[in-house]
Amino acid sequence: MREQGVSQLIGKMGADAIPVAVVTAFFGVVGLVLPFIVGRGPNKGVIQVVLSITAASCWLFWLLAYMHQMNPLIGPQLHNTTVIALQYLWDNNLNLTELESTTDMSSTMEFTSSTMEFTSSTPATA
């Protein structure tokens, strides 16, 4: 019963294995491996402490940002010009000439797709 619950929870996590593994491994090396191969010297201890605390805090900081975005409860609310810019620059699915042609027949356009949600202002809920 409990095992099922845990696996269900893990299944729900919107995490991607690769970035988690890479970042964790990177800071693992910095915080756990490097301190053991620091050369001898009067400052060995200081270097070890600096390395491990750095790795721990930086990893935690990355993790918090990652987990906060893992299961987003709200989506970004974008300005109309931003939307066009994003379509053109990031998604590459906007043809500028096409856009111009659609403006003429915009009055006949119908809103059929249910995947979109147009709102003038959405109250943000955290």
Binding site: Q69, P72, L73, I74, G75, P76, Q77, L78, H79, N80, T81, V83, I84, L86, Q87, W90, D91, N93, L94, L99, T102, T103, S106, S107, M109, F111, S113, T115, M116, E117, F118, T119, S120, S121, T122
Partner: peptide, 28 residues
Amino acid sequence: FGSSWHIGDNANATEANLQAWGELTLDP
């Protein structure tokens, strides 16, 4: 790394629609 958010089906993002609505919220 490439944003995780996309505008999606571009049929809706016409200038008229955007002008009418002003802002667009992407639903996760």
